[in-house]
Amino acid sequence: MKSHRIFSLGILVVALLLTATSVRAQFSYESSLSLSGGAYAASGFGTNHYVGVRYNYFFLGGRYFVEAALGFSSLRSRVLESVSNLRLFDTQRLYAYEFVGAYDASPSGYIPFITAGFAGINQGGQSRFAGVLGLGKRIPLPGFLGTNQLGLRYDIRDHIFEQRVNGGDSFIAHNIGFTLGMQLYF
């Protein structure tokens, strides 16, 4: 089992490093809009599907950008449902909005960009202010569908905030999201 995990982690590392070997990032566009989907693991609840949109504004040669993002997921927990049918919040809906800055040290190279910022997390009707750390990579697709404005991107984000359930002791929660998306530059 341990060797299986190491192998899976190795595949992920190779995938992260190989994404930009033969492409160079497009710096000629100022903005981009992307639609992303993936998985979102809410701390203490489980992993559910995640969909979101992101707007990026690039400056200083594309090495820096700011981003506004909105995403939707769920707090559904199969463990809680099967063990006790417990309902901790009024609703299972979860949405998160982010405002982050990012630095891309190697837009056409191997190194992913890093992001840092803040997010508002609404879990089951309760709002939390969270810090955001993450990384990702933009993969332009020049010539795809006859245009140079399309690209792929992946993002890994960690939403860090103080959580308190049923009036108990507070703890620091980490909600982790991984998304893959299609990006439109304009």
Binding site: V14, A15, L16, L18, T19, A20, T21, S22, V23, R24, A25, Q26, F27, S28, E30, F58, F59, L60, G61, G62, P107, S108, I139, P140, L141, P142, G143, N148, L152, Y154, L180
Partner: peptide, 18 residues
């Protein structure tokens, strides 16, 4: 998709810094 893209032979247009 990340594994397949580097082997597609796509070469991006020259980067033009803003």
């Amino acid at each position: 998709a990340c594994l397949l893209i580097p082997h597609s032979g796509i070469i991006a247009q020259d980067s033009v810094p803003v």
